[in-house]
Amino acid sequence: MAYFKMSWLALKWALKKPATSPYPFVPRRLLAGSRGKLSFTKDGCVYCNVCAKKCPTHAIVVNRANKKWAIDRLRCIACGYCVEACPKDSLTLKPEHGAPTITRDREIH
């Protein structure tokens, strides 16, 4: 039958477990290499401002005088350019993604 080429595929999958998952109830599998959320560790940071300079979207602001590091999460594109540039390895990209937000507040560390 030239008309029912899809039947086998549809029936096979009707009996199989669905490929999707009930998302909010079952969290998504995290992939190790994924560029998710940028995380900052205060310990080694020398507030050299390199990350802020390299950031293509100007999401990071560093204040050397007050020893403050801030990021605008809505602006960050998770490219990881700052992670590569950081001389002290204070920045890492975690595979998990950030929580949704509706405010534009800067996250200050």
């Binding site: 899809m6 595929l9 549809a10 999958w13 490929a19 992939l31 190790a32 290499g33 994924s34 560029r35 998770a78 990881g80 990209l93």
Partner: peptide, 23 residues
């Protein structure tokens, strides 16, 4: 249904891409 199945396969590939490149 063909649409959904095409995208199901695409998801598998996107997982490979995410694991290797991060996006």
């Amino acid at each position: 249904s063909l649409f959904m199945h095409s995208w199901r396969i695409r998801e598998q590939l996107l997982d490979i891409i995410e694991a290797t490149t991060g996006g």
